[in-house]
Every structure is written in C-alpha cells, then in structure tokens.
C-alpha cells in the first residue's frame, strides 16, 4: 500500500518535472535558430560575438521565421503556468497572461508605433537598457506570423500543462 502511493507520487512528480524540461528544450531550440540562421549582429544577445559568426545556414527553412516566437511563447507560458499552480484557472491565466505580454511587445514593433515614438536621446544613452528597448521598438519588425506563433505556443503550453492533471 505504501509502495503504491509512493509510485503514484513519483509518477506525478515526474510528469510535472517534464514540463519545465520541455520549456528548457524549447528555449534551446529557439536559440539555435538565432545561432544557425540569423545575423548575429541583429540580435542584441549575440551582437558581441558577431565577428565570430560563420556562414549562415537555412537549416529550419520557412519554420525558422516563426520558430523562435513559438518556442519562446511556449516556454514562458508554461513556466508561468507552473509558477501559478495546477488549477485549470491558473493554467488559463498563465497562458493568457504571457500571450498578452508577448502580443503587446510584438505590436509595439509595428511601424505606426515607431513613427510616434521619439526616444529621448540623452536618457537612452545614459541607460543602456532603455537604449536596447528603443532599438527594439524602432528597428524591430512587426510580423503577423509571430503573433500567430505566439498564440499557438501559449495554447500548446496550456494543453500540455493539462496533461499531468488529467493523469492524476
């Protein structure tokens, strides 16, 4: 009797531990798109190593355009869900919350927004973080494909996070 309960607990824990593992894998996959296909000089986290970049490869094909957005949304929606709790309401909140954040960030890259944004030069120079944000807003590309990929990532995160609950 004791052994059976313990096994169930271990299985439940394993299922829940698999979720952050899948989030980590998704982040690695998304990062690999940048490393393999993108121009390092165009991504702030890779820009310092741009001089070391070799030939860019078209490894992911058309998927490479939206895979980072999908993976990022999946990973962070899932991690947010795990932080919020196991309930259905928490899972829904987590997925919707991250979709809202990611969607806002994507929309802020729209060209019409850049035209009304005039960054205060002195401030952005003094605070590098703001400078990065300013670059992101002014020079990033709004893409409907990213928006769809983000929604898909959040939805799948919601569904995947429901699996352990169903088995419990």
């Amino acid at each position: 009797m004791y052994t059976g309960t313990s096994t169930l607990i271990r299985r439940d824990a394993a299922r829940w531990l698999a979720l952050p593992g899948s989030a980590l894998l998704a982040l690695c996959l998304g990062t690999s798109v940048y490393i393999v296909e993108r121009d390092w000089a165009t991504a702030l986290f890779l820009a310092p190593f741009a001089a070391l970049q070799g030939e860019q490869a078209d490894f992911f094909g058309v998927l490479g355009n939206v895979l980072p957005a999908f993976c990022h949304a999946y990973a962070f929606a899932l991690l947010l869900i795990l932080a919020l709790g196991r309930s259905r309401r928490a899972r829904l909140t987590g997925a919707c919350a991250w979709f809202s954040v990611a969607a806002i960030l994507e929309v802020l890259q729209a060209e019409w927004f850049a035209t009304v944004l005039d960054r205060p030069a002195a401030l952005t120079t003094a605070v590098p973080a703001l400078n990065s944000l300013s670059n992101y807003l002014l020079n990033g590309h709004f893409d409907y494909g990213d928006l769809v990929a983000t929604g898909l990532g959040c939805a799948i995160a919601y569904l995947i996070s429901s699996v352990p609950e169903e088995f419990s």
Binding site: G30, L44, G64, V66, H72, L105, S132, Y136, F142, D143
Partner: peptide, 13 residues
C-alpha cells in the same frame, strides 16, 4: 524578447 529582437524575421528572413 527584447534581446532577441522579438523573434521576428519579418517574412523572408
């Protein structure tokens, strides 16, 4: 998201 530029490729990379 900001550090990666939002993941967007804007279409044809």
């Amino acid at each position: 998201t900001i550090a990666t530029g939002g993941g967007s490729s804007g279409g044809v990379a």
